Simulated scan of single mutants.
Amino acid sequence: MSNKVILVVLDGLNYQVARDCMGYLNGLLEQQRASLYQVECQLPSMSRPLYECILTGVRPVDSGIVNNNVVRLSNQSSIFSLAASQGKVTSAAAYHWISELYNRAPYHPVLDRFTNDETMNIQHGCFYHWDHYPDEALFLDAEYLRRTYHPDFLLIHPMNIDDMGHKYGLDSRQYRNCARGADIILSNYIEQWRRDGYQIMITSDHGMNNDLSHGGILAEEREVPLFVIGDKFTHHACQVEQTEICGNVCQLLNLEHSKPYTQELLAL
């Protein structure tokens, strides 16, 4: 039996800020309703390369998506392509680079912002191209997609935490408060997602530094959280690699695949 999966990628969220500031998620941890793993992101610690890593399991130096200016379709199998080709329903509320990687490149707002095409890897999408697009609106987009199309796999990818980091830096109240805001938004949805049968993974592509950037090897740039919520996770202590997130989702979706995954993480 397959499970439905929601993968939330909170762009630019540093591990320690998630641990210190996200009270609802930490409340689930305290009550043993979730588990948290520290993940080291691949290099370079940049967004587009790491979207590709998370969604295909392939390191940037191997995928060829090595910086944010590489604008082309992915040439790797992804969660989206594997799920769509095996009869699953796929959906994403995400930054437009996700559309460029898995649906069509370059992104054309008029044609691609709202996608409803079962021939695409991402069949149902709400994409945005403003870094300041409100997280609250993005989660509403995602919930519309979820309730309308009942996807087996839904990617939710808000950008405001990263945007605040680029404006004010890691050690700023604006960055921390934006993480707190994302936690509040998540608290309004997670219980309903669980009642509707979703396994939930919440992570980030990369962290942030005090130079208002990321891209290198500093711990604050590379250390990101992975919260898992659901009965198909063991909740045991284990090491999860960023390259295994794709395979973990594929396992949960009961897809045929050859991706690496974390056997100790999954109760399957």
Rank of each mutant, 00 (worst) to 15 (best):
P106N: 01
H214V: 06
S81H: 07
V240L: 09
V89E: 05
N26E: 11
C250A: 15
S78C: 07
V66G: 00
M201E: 05
L50D: 02
S45T: 15
S213Y: 05
M159K: 09
A18G: 12
Y128H: 08
Y15D: 00
G247H: 00
R146L: 14
D162V: 06
C178G: 00
G87Q: 08
Y37Q: 09
Q86R: 11
S81V: 02
L55H: 06
L145W: 02
G207Q: 02
I122P: 07
V8N: 09
R19D: 00
A18L: 10
Q32A: 14
D211G: 12
H132C: 12
T90Y: 11
L266M: 11
R33P: 01
G27W: 04
N121K: 10
K167I: 03
A84D: 08
D117F: 07
I229S: 07
L25K: 00
A83G: 01
R48M: 09
H150S: 14
V70T: 09
A219T: 10
S172N: 01
D183Y: 04
Y51M: 12
I161E: 01
V228H: 06
S35D: 11
E220F: 00
Q38E: 15
R173N: 11
D11T: 12
K232W: 08
Y133D: 05
R146N: 08
E220A: 02
S2P: 15
L7P: 10
A105N: 13
L43D: 13
E221L: 06
I202P: 01
Q263A: 15
G230K: 03
F227Y: 15
G216V: 09
Y144F: 13
C178W: 00
Q42H: 07
I54E: 04
N68W: 09
A93Q: 05
Q123V: 06
S85I: 05
D152P: 07
V61Q: 13
L111S: 08
S187Y: 02
S35R: 14
Y261P: 03
S63V: 01
H157N: 13
G12S: 10
Y175W: 02
H124V: 06
Q76K: 09
G230D: 07
S2I: 11
W193S: 04
Q192M: 10
L138F: 08
K167D: 11
H132A: 09
I79M: 00
E244M: 03
N14M: 04
L82E: 11
W97M: 09
H129I: 03
Y144E: 05
T203W: 07
Y144C: 04
M1H: 14
K232E: 14
C21L: 04
W97N: 04
C178T: 06
R59N: 05
Q123R: 13
S74G: 03
D152M: 12
